[in-house]
Amino acid sequence: MVKAYRKPREIIWVTGFFLLVISIFFGLSGYLMLWDERAFAAVRVATGGAGNLPVVGSFIKIFLRGGTDVTGETLIRFYAFHVAILPVLSLLLIGVHVLLVQYHGMSVPVFVENKQKAGEPFFPNVFYKDMMIWLMVLGVVATLAVFLPPEIGNKANSLAPPPEGIKPEWYFLFMMETLELFPGTIYCFNGETIAIICVTIGIIFFFLIPFLDRKSNRGEKNPLFTIIALIYLIYFVAMTIIGFST
């Protein structure tokens, strides 16, 4: 509704998008560190789903797993991603993101943009406010980690079948439910592959919104992309709730 991606803030949207992707991969890579049956099965399904992408799927799967299946090599690789590569990428993107926000200013709705008063300086005003929020979030996360630590199940066994009723973390439930919407075969094509392609197209479209919504870039109202955003949100919430309840 705010259309925060409006020109000249397209790159801010892009950096935010990649930060979201990295955050999700942080969750996936950290999940495998438990090395229990649930984590093993979840990573096998996630990397196997990526392997269903046409052309590049096999390469992505082997690159993530470090081989054809989830093994100790996968654990080492995910550990390297989790503690070295992803943190560095996150810091770089956060730095670029903050600099761009500081340069272009915070986005506001179109109807108040012309009425906006002069903003307050980033340092120390905005910096201290952001630090307070970060410290509050860190306190909540630390409290949850101490009093509600993750449960570690049985040690992963590549030869054992996955546990019954296994489910991924909540932010992957919509993907699980999406895959279940598609039958095994659709006109001689693999249903899971078609589902992965549809999700990929949806993600790419989400990434390209700043470059597609030309009316908002001109300062005009464009309810179409607001409706699309609501559809995205409703679908994600609905599939997540269904995933929890089934």
Rank of each mutant, 00 (worst) to 15 (best):
Phe26Cys: 05
Phe17Gln: 03
Asp36Ser: 12
His104Lys: 09
Val14Ser: 08
Val108Pro: 11
Val88Gln: 00
Ile76Gln: 05
Asp36Lys: 04
Ser29Leu: 03
Ile94Leu: 14
Tyr103Met: 03
Asp69Val: 12
Val88Phe: 08
Leu92Trp: 07
Val70Leu: 02
Val45Cys: 00
Ile60Arg: 03
Ala80Arg: 14
Phe18Arg: 03
Ile22Cys: 11
Leu92Gln: 00
Lys61His: 14
Gly105Val: 11
Ser107Pro: 12
Leu92Met: 01
Asn52Cys: 08
Ala39Lys: 04
Phe18Gln: 07
Arg38Gln: 10
Ser90Gln: 05
Ser29Thr: 15
Leu92Ser: 00
Val88Glu: 00
Leu75Ile: 09
Gly16Gln: 08
Leu92Phe: 08
Ile62Val: 15
Leu92Pro: 02
Gly72Arg: 07
Gly66Ser: 12
Leu28Glu: 14
Ser23His: 08
Leu91Lys: 03
Val45Lys: 05
Pro109Cys: 08
Ser58Gln: 13
Val56Met: 04
Gly30Cys: 04
Phe26Ser: 09
Gly27Cys: 11
Leu89Asn: 12
Phe26Gly: 01
Ser29His: 06
Thr15Ser: 09
Gly67Cys: 04
Tyr79Leu: 08
Val101Asp: 00
Leu92Asp: 01
Val112Leu: 09
Ile94Lys: 06
Gln102Phe: 02
Ala41Glu: 02
Leu93Gly: 10
Tyr79Gly: 06
Ala41Lys: 05
Ile62Met: 13
Ser107Thr: 10
Phe63Tyr: 14
Arg44Ser: 15
Leu93Pro: 14
Ala84Asp: 00
Ile60Cys: 01
Tyr103Ala: 05
Leu99Lys: 15
Asn52Met: 14
Val83Asn: 02
Val83Arg: 03
Val101Thr: 11
Pro54Phe: 13
Val55His: 09
Ser29Phe: 13
Val45Trp: 09
Gly16Trp: 01
Val70Trp: 02
Ala42Ser: 07
Phe63Asp: 03
Arg77Trp: 06
Ser107Ala: 15
Leu53Ser: 07
Gly105Glu: 10
Thr74Met: 08
Val112Ile: 15
Gly30Asp: 03
Ile22Tyr: 00
Thr68Val: 09
Gly57Cys: 06
Ile24His: 15
Val112Cys: 06
Leu75Tyr: 14
Gly67Lys: 06
Ala46Gln: 06
His82Val: 09
Ile94Glu: 01
Thr47Phe: 15
Ala42Lys: 00
Phe59Asn: 00
Phe78Trp: 07
His97Asn: 14
Gly30Trp: 04
Gly16Pro: 14
Leu20Cys: 09
Leu28Arg: 11
Phe59Pro: 00
Gly72Phe: 07
Tyr103Glu: 05
Ser23Pro: 02
Met33Cys: 04
Ile94Tyr: 07
Leu99Tyr: 14
Glu37Ser: 10
Tyr31Val: 00
Phe59His: 01
Met106Ile: 08
His97Ser: 11
Gly95Leu: 04
Phe40Leu: 13
Leu100Ala: 11
Ser107Asp: 11
Leu64Thr: 06
Ile62Trp: 13
Asp69Thr: 15
Ser29Ala: 15
His97Arg: 04
Gly67Leu: 04
